[in-house]
Design a protein around this nucleic acid. Sequence first.
DNA 1: TTCTATGCAAACCATTTGCATCCAT
DNA 2: ATGGATGCAAATGGTTTGCATAGAA
Lengths: 154, 154
Amino acid sequence: MQKVAAANEVNGMHDHLAEYIRKKGLRQTNQRKLVSDVFFRGKGHLSIDDLLAMVRKKDPSVGYATVYRTLKLLSECGLAYERQFRDGPTRYELAHDESHHDHLICVQCGRIEEFEEDRIEKLQEGVAERHGFKLSSHRHELYGVCASCQRARG
Amino acid sequence: MQKVAAANEVNGMHDHLAEYIRKKGLRQTNQRKLVSDVFFRGKGHLSIDDLLAMVRKKDPSVGYATVYRTLKLLSECGLAYERQFRDGPTRYELAHDESHHDHLICVQCGRIEEFEEDRIEKLQEGVAERHGFKLSSHRHELYGVCASCQRARG
DNA sequence: TTCTATGCAAACCATTTGCATCCAT
DNA sequence: ATGGATGCAAATGGTTTGCATAGAA
């Protein structure tokens, strides 16, 4: 899916962030606006390096740490999810408030697809219950070779 | 279930390793025997630090890197699985050739339990198929509060 | 003897932090 | 003018690697 957010969604996200910043007594800065705008308009599953490169096209003076700190902020206020696949760096994903999904990752090209499977979610809850766990989150990743890599290399 | 391996299983694992070492033209060393013995007799889900501490009780001169290198070797030859939970360090698990399992991790005490749920495995395959992926592996971790932590802190 | 394995320290890589300065409030 | 935010560089933490030496084969 990897939807790109529509313009009005982007505005909504900026508002959400502004609100959060106000409530916490933090500050609006150009860097925060720029980094979050790039993230909101981006394609999802982006690493800090990806984001920094995109940000620096608009303002080369932005520092590494600022991108980290801004994405932490976005995660805190519920606009981003941190995802850590296999070994690579942490990737950030837009948290549009759709239903939950998990990921398929191609081990050859790195392509990331999303999937939703309610029956798995249900079964997970059963597992947790049987073990007496109160679930707070989970991570479910499927690794394999995607359709186009199969075509390309057999 | 975190089983401890029976004596005959431990012997079998040593044999398996010796065989692999021979085939690859590598060398039997005391460190390898010691590290792998400690691992084979251990409780599963151990970090390098855990293992190093156990190893150094028997031979304080063993180095950090040797434990890493030995566990990489054990992974290569199919005797260990590397598991990377949340943020903590890589943990190593005995690969007794039982059926596949996944994990429940307590976010409070770090306790790790194992679960098996064939219906989830089946559903995963369906998901992969629908996306045209050829699955090679997966990672499925459930995070929450375990029974005893719930009792302890409500 | 030959060539892998070891132990140590240094290198790595992603991420975090300390700090002087900058700047939104 | 305050005190949070930034950019830089240094620190961190887990893991890997280079290298001289030890030790299997």
